[in-house]
Design a protein around this nucleic acid. Structure first.
Length: 817
DNA sequence: AACAGTTCTTAGGTA
DNA sequence: AAGAACTGTT
């Protein structure tokens, strides 16, 4: 009730005085660069606001200006503003831009972070209200699965038939819907062989004992706390005068409830989103949240940002027509002042390898500048795939031709084996009672502590109700483990004792303890203290080096002769380097458990390869969208699980993909593709049929097989059909001569290796010779053994290959294809 | 307990 | 095709 419709006079008075107070830098300069819609979005400060921001319409600008405006007009002090995003990247960008707008003011920054990071901060303060201590650990998916596996076994269930992953998915789903075990018990009992809710309850108990939470708990616990402690909730409601939410279309039920609880005080909530870009239904996002906004928040202002500053009219046109096949949209009409430009290009290929080859060549051509187009730097080009396994074909090809690329969202830095091991050691140093960490590294490196020894420790821990670390000590005391293993275990335990002491000595454990919940404390507590290190205190870095050293972990990889070992050591070094930015080990662990980024700014320009999901929010002059085939995109699995709903979500994904492109967008599909190692013939995606002919140019594929496809200049091959919005039908595509030819080829057995590599006879290599390999590119001979050679490839690392596959580097030009 | 060889499963996106 | 899980051998 406080908050809207009572504002006009109020606004002027307040802003004047507050500006004076803040030593105002004159009238808000940031307003000048805004278009009318953006300006409305920035200046409609009170009450609920829904900002419907289409792709490329300057949403982040509006959002950050709005925050600046709130502060500039004195509506709120920075830390009375809460801005939540979904990704760390988005949070980082927002911080940067807001920081820039605000200048180096003394007032501090708003609360800006992901749902998860904000919740961690809150939950650490109030952990005891859900039976946790404030230094709880956050489990990653791996820990979660291992834990569930134990519980499933303990419940005497067949782990084969009832895999832990499945249970993890079910529990995740419940948590996304803010359902606690008690709430589940009533209605969802059929799940997981009727044991779902029981196992869920056991899991939550186990987490509590371990003083741990999973990702879903961060929100779930906060909701529980808010609902159980209305006074506390009221304090936060009073505190956060303005709440902003980015990507609102991606919120799940739990997030929605959390927001609604917090926003009920001042009712100043501004949600920004685009229903057409809702692509996270599979992890619980509810498009319904954004569609329902006006009902949920009566009196809401709706502002539409529709002027697109990113793409050409053809790209925009193609995307708009495609998305218009979806039902239940809020509806937007994107427009642009940019006229002309290239049409969206469509091309079919024989198979996935040809597709990769063609795209590689096209990228190089665009880099040089062709057909009157300005040259496009590799940084400006991206390949967006539906599923990560599509990436390999491109990596292989680009390795071969030496085209620099970067994979975004590949295996994350902190998910790598060696990093997880190292982290487990760090966790043990911080809290020796971290059983999951203990389990992980007790026999890594190998200490001769196999299943039997570990079972012994587990049993002692269970019988005495103590943690594994204490159990290990007890086992040693009682001499239950003897010989070499005992010595090793003793070394391990003593190490942990030593490291833990060092951590304790280094400083007080970060604390925001219970009881600091009055407003004054909130003010003082800098919301998002950026990790700043005390310049001269690097003790935690030395400690980690010491830990990795004394545990024998580093040595383990030094002894390892597999090709990955050097890379792993490299990663460990980077881990240590990353520590520099934190003042203590605890802060670092926190960071790593939440962060997901390893996109180090590249030195040389590189093509980006990533998933469509990861591409949301990004833009590139040139975009390639390969693999538009039914079953792959739209994904068969999604369709099986969610039917029509899934197709709409996949279509939105296609929409997201096309709208990433500024200048040139190329969609492609292949007639054949290897799936699970088996060749399969593929049909073009149904989304291709939905593209408007007037915005699309069909290219003639090169090469042996594809020639002629669509050569007549459109899906319809020029035949005068006309449907409502001039779409081609599938029949048009299938009737094209090129497609027919492809199809007939597809049903014939695929030649075992169309690109059969010729063996080159009578070529002898010596060590240090420069050679070329069709798959791995250029390299140097390191060693020879009969017809096998060890080659140090420039791009692909060291590999053993048959000499017959090699050519002298200077003859590389004759390589087939 | 550690290793090598074999069979089995898996291949949607993420904080 | 690649990795995980499993088997049997040393």
């Amino acid at each position: 009730m406080s908050g809207y419709d009572d504002t006009d006079a109020f606004e002027g008075a307040l802003s004047l005085s507050q500006r004076a107070m803040a030593g105002a830098r004159g009238p808000a300069p940031y307003l000048d660069g805004l278009n009318p819609a953006q300006r409305t979005a920035v200046e409609t400060l009170d009450g609920p606001v829904l900002m419907l921001a289409g792709a490329g319409t300057g949403k982040t600008k509006a959002l950050t200006c709005r925050i600046a405006h709130l502060i500039h007009t004195g509506r709120a002090r920075p830390n009375e503003i809460l801005a939540v995003t979904f990704t760390n990247k988005a949070a980082r960008e927002m911080k940067e831009r807001v920081g820039h707008l605000l200048g180096a003011g003394p007032e501090g920054m708003p609360w800006m972070g992901t749902f998860h990071s904000v919740c961690v901060k809150l939950l650490r303060r109030h952990a005891e209200l859900v039976g946790l201590r404030s230094n709880f650990t956050i489990l990653d998916t791996d820990d979660q699965i291992r834990l569930l596996k134990q519980l499933i076994l303990a419940a005497n269930m067949d782990e084969k038939r009832w895999p832990a992953r499945m249970l993890a998915g079910i529990i995740d789903g419940w948590k996304n819907r803010a359902l606690t075990p008690e709430r589940v018990k009533g209605h969802d009992t059929a799940e997981f062989n009727n044991r779902g809710s029981e196992l869920y309850a056991a899991y939550q108990d186990r987490l509590r004992t371990l003083n741990a939470v999973d990702f879903g708990d961060l929100l779930l616990h906060m909701i529980t706390i808010f609902q159980a402690a209305p006074d506390l909730l009221a304090q936060y409601q009073r505190w956060f005068k303005y709440i902003l939410v980015d990507e609102y279309q991606d919120t799940n039920v739990a997030q929605y409830l959390w927001l609604r609880l917090l926003a009920q005080g001042h009712r100043n909530i501004c949600c920004v989103g685009d229903d057409d870009q809702s692509i996270y239904g599979w992890r619980g996002a509810e498009v319904g949240n954004i569609l329902r906004f006006e009902k949920d928040f009566p009196g809401a202002h709706v502002v539409r940002l529709e002027q697109n500053y990113r793409s050409t009219e053809h790209i925009l046109g193609a995307a708009s027509v495609l998305i218009s096949s979806n039902e239940g949209r809020l509806g937007k009409t994107l427009w642009t002042e940019a006229k002309g430009g290239e049409k969206v290009r469509l091309i079919g290929h024989w198979d996935g390898e040809e597709e990769a080859r063609w795209i590689g060549e096209e990228i190089e051509a665009l880099q040089r500048g062709t057909r009157g187009l300005v040259p496009v730097n590799l940084d400006g080009q991206a390949i967006l795939v539906r599923a990560s396994h599509q990436m390999r074909a491109f990596e292989d090809r680009f390795l071969t031709i030496g085209l620099p690329y970067r994979v975004v969202g590949g295996p994350r830095f902190y998910e790598r084996l060696e990093i997880r091991d190292a982290m487990a050691y760090c966790r043990l140093a911080v809290s020796p009672e971290d059983d999951l960490a203990f389990e992980r590294v007790v026999n890594t490196p190998k200490r001769g502590l196999g299943d039997k020894a570990q079972a012994r420790i587990q049993a002692v821990a269970r019988d005495n109700g103590i943690c594994l670390f204490d159990a290990a000590r007890l086992v040693l005391q009682q001499g239950e483990i003897t010989g070499k293993a005992a010595g090793q275990l003793r070394g391990f335990v003593e190490g942990i004792v030593r490291w833990h002491a060092a951590v304790q000595a280094a400083g007080p454990v970060m604390v925001a303890q219970a009881g600091d919940d009055d407003d004054d404390q909130l003010i003082e507590d800098e919301p998002e203290a950026p990790p700043v290190r005390a310049a001269n205190d690097q003790s935690h870095i030395r400690l980690v080096e010491q830990i990795l050293d004394e545990s024998g972990y580093t040595q383990m990889w030094l002894n390892d002769k597999t090709p990955e070992a050097p890379g792993r050591l490299e990663n460990l070094k980077e881990l240590v380097k990353a520590l520099e930015q934190f003042e203590n080990l605890q802060g670092f662990l926190e960071h790593v458990s939440l962060i997901m980024d390893n996109d180090r700014a590249g030195d040389e320009p590189k093509v980006t390869i990533m998933t469509l999901h990861a591409a949301k929010g990004l833009e590139f002059p040139v975009v390639f969208l390969p693999g538009w085939e039914d079953g792959l995109f739209p994904s068969q699995r999604a369709m099986d699980e969610n039917g029509q709903k899934a197709i709409e979500e996949e279509r939105r994904l296609a929409y997201v993909g096309i709208t990433r492109a500024e200048e040139l967008c190329t969609i492609s599909f292949a007639g054949n593709r290897r799936v699970y190692g088996q060749w399969q013939s593929q049909l073009p995606s149904r989304f291709i049929d939905e593209l408007p002919v007037r915005h699309v140019e069909v290219l003639t594929p090169p090469g042996l097989y594809g020639g002629g496809f669509g050569a007549a200049g459109g899906f319809g091959g020029g035949r005068g059909h006309s449907t409502i919005d001039d779409r081609a039908t599938k029949a048009d595509v299938y009737n094209s001569p090129g497609w027919k030819r492809m199809e007939s080829r597809a049903s014939a057995p695929v030649p075992a290796r169309a690109r059969a590599v010729r063996t080159v006879e009578a070529v002898h290599f010596g060590v240090d010779d420069r050679v070329f390999h069709t798959k791995f590119g250029y390299g140097t001979v390191l060693d020879l053994d009969g017809d096998t050679a060890l080659i140090g490839f420039d791009k692909a690392g060291e590999k053993h290959v048959k000499a017959g596959f090699l050519k002298p580097a200077d003859q590389a030009d004759d390589v087939p294809f």
